[in-house]
């Protein structure tokens, strides 16, 4: 009999805990943007190009969590080393509880960098202006009384080099981008990428209309926003 009461109490306690609120108690959520080591330290693609980012500016149009606005608009260069901590973009004081309502909008991504292989260096400076709203992220943020919790907007920059939008394990490639440098001046431009075919790249089930590398990159850039590392969010392109 005691066991039944114990189990019942345990279940009810779990329920109460999950619901989260602790009266008028409050805590803080610190929101950061982190580009991972791919951006901060560079990466080596599967086809042997060493890629370094000099700049990886992510412009946020608005970030909110726990029904509170963290920041209206800000731009963060996630290429600046952060020792794995990311860059704080705002903080809010909210009632204790567990929150899964984080939303953020990325309005622009501007990148500048270089890739090297076998003594060849290709430079790039590209800007992507498609605004994308991220919501329903598959993560939650637990706020305890008087404590700091973190919500991280994680930028998956390595996705820019995926050779497939459909594969669970795409290759990380740069050669096609290097080959797009049609005038061979070692600078890869938007126009050159627009003129370059996709070759063996797989733009995905919804990619029938993607037939050049610029359009492909534009689509990839709308999928770089994640939360707390690997958590996915629903990404919705905002059409003007």
């Amino acid at each position: 009999m005691k066991l039944y009461y114990f189990l019942s109490a345990l279940v009810l306690a779990l329920l109460a805990s999950a619901c989260g609120d602790d009266g008028d108690a409050e805590g803080t959520i610190v929101v950061t943007a982190y580009g991972e080591e791919f951006v901060e330290e560079g990466l080596t693609t599967d086809d042997g190009w060493d890629v370094q980012f000099d700049r990886f500016d992510v412009s946020f149009g608005g970030v909110s969590i726990a029904d509170a606005i963290v920041t209206a608009a800000t731009t963060v260069d996630v290429a600046v080393p952060s020792a794995g901590q990311g860059h704080e973009i705002g903080r809010v004081t909210v009632p204790t509880g567990t929150y899964d309502d984080a939303r953020f909008t990325i309005t622009r991504v501007a990148i500048e960098g270089r890739a090297q292989k076998d003594g060849v260096e290709k430079r790039f400076a590209l800007a992507f202006d498609d605004a994308v709203s991220y919501s329903l992220c598959e993560t939650s943020t637990r706020v305890r009384k008087g404590a700091e919790a973190r919500f991280e907007i994680t930028i998956h920059a390595d996705h820019l080099f995926f050779d497939s939008r459909a594969s669970a394990e795409p290759n990380l490639l740069f050669q096609a981008l290097a080959d797009a440098d049609a005038d061979d001046d070692d600078v890869i431009t938007e126009d050159e990428l627009e003129a370059a075919g996709l070759g063996a790249y797989d733009p995905g089930s919804d990619g029938a209309d993607i037939d050049n590398l610029w359009d492909y990159l534009e689509r990839l850039i709308t999928e770089i926003g994640h939360a707390d590392g690997e958590a996915h969010c629903v990404a919705t392109r905002i059409v003007d």
Partner: peptide, 12 residues
């Protein structure tokens, strides 16, 4: 690859 891209797309 032109045809493959469409064969792999849900449009068709």
């Amino acid at each position: 690859f032109e045809l493959r891209r469409r064969l792999l797309a849900h449009d068709f």
